[in-house]
């Protein structure tokens, strides 16, 4: 039986959650919506997070990116490392897939925006 007291991060409400259970049955209390219940169960058994980071494009401009779905917490550092090795063309635009199935986790890395080059880069 595991027990976890935390705060739901699904939205800015920040509901205080109490999560009790094991692989079979998990009880979530303190949530005020369904998303909180789903988050609570996941957080107890398989905590994961959407990752956001950067890819420097060929011409030096900066693209922001995110994982298409949450990544297991213990693999975040590995995925960030994989993102740092991505090379992408200067024609990259928001929505482009920069890396398919990163580290075999079933998660794509997707561009969310590209900043125009500034005086610094």
């Amino acid at each position: 039986m595991k027990e976890l007291n935390t705060i739901c991060i699904m939205c800015p409400m920040g509901c205080p959650l109490k999560i009790v259970g094991d692989g079979e049955k998990v009880e979530v209390s303190g949530n005020t919506c369904k998303r909180g219940e789903i988050y609570g169960k996941e957080e107890l058994l398989h905590p994961s997070r959407v990752i956001t980071s950067l890819v420097i494009l060929e011409d030096g401009s900066v693209a922001s990116c995110k994982s298409s779905s949450p990544v297991p917490k213990e693999r975040i550092a590995d995925v960030v490392d994989a993102i740092s090795h991505i090379s992408a063309p200067k024609t990259t635009k928001a929505g482009d897939v920069l890396l398919k199935d990163a580290l075999g986790l079933g998660v794509d890395i997707i561009a969310t925006g590209v900043s125009p080059k500034s005086g610094l880069n």
């Binding site: 950067l54 900066v62 922001s64 610094l120 880069n121």
Partner: peptide, 8 residues
């Protein structure tokens, strides 16, 4: 801004 826009 320096990090996310300029990459520093």
């Amino acid at each position: 801004k320096l990090c996310n826009v300029s990459g520093y």
